[in-house]
Amino acid sequence: MKATGDRTKAPAGDPDPCFVSACITEEPIQAERLLDLGSRADGALLLFVGRVRDHNDGRPVARLRYEAYTEMAERELEAILREAADRCEATRIEAVHRTGTLEIGEASVAIAVASPHRAAAFEASRYVIEEIKKRLPVWKREVYADGSDAWVHAASEDPPR
């Protein structure tokens, strides 16, 4: 586990207009830990958590196994966060993506955005999750109730770049 930024080093009034922190981790995501993001200038703080659900395409799912090209995924996630910060004028964005075996209800991804106003926070959060789905080199294998398993094929998207 390695964070690409450390928000303890980005105090209120930090001149860096787009502080971001990207992390790929095997450890359980503690989403509530992301809720102290931002500064006194940020009137909006938005937290999105993606969780493992108990079904997919009508089939009961027992758990998921996530695999990542970790070194690239961390770099790509940080690039996505920087793009979101630049496009949406968010001031702080932190995102964590989990790998390994996840049980139903566990968080697979968490995205926190702090911004002076709500519109930028919603826009940035949406941008980050959609780009994660398109570009982040992460794969998931569904394990079904009957013990069988299969790689999940994401909805057809244009290949990255």
Binding site: G50, Y66, Y69, H97, V109, P137, V138, K140, E157
Partner: peptide, 10 residues
């Protein structure tokens, strides 16, 4: 060089 199969994060 890495081969990147269709991704499915999130």
């Amino acid at each position: 060089l890495a081969l990147i199969p269709p991704v499915a994060g999130g």
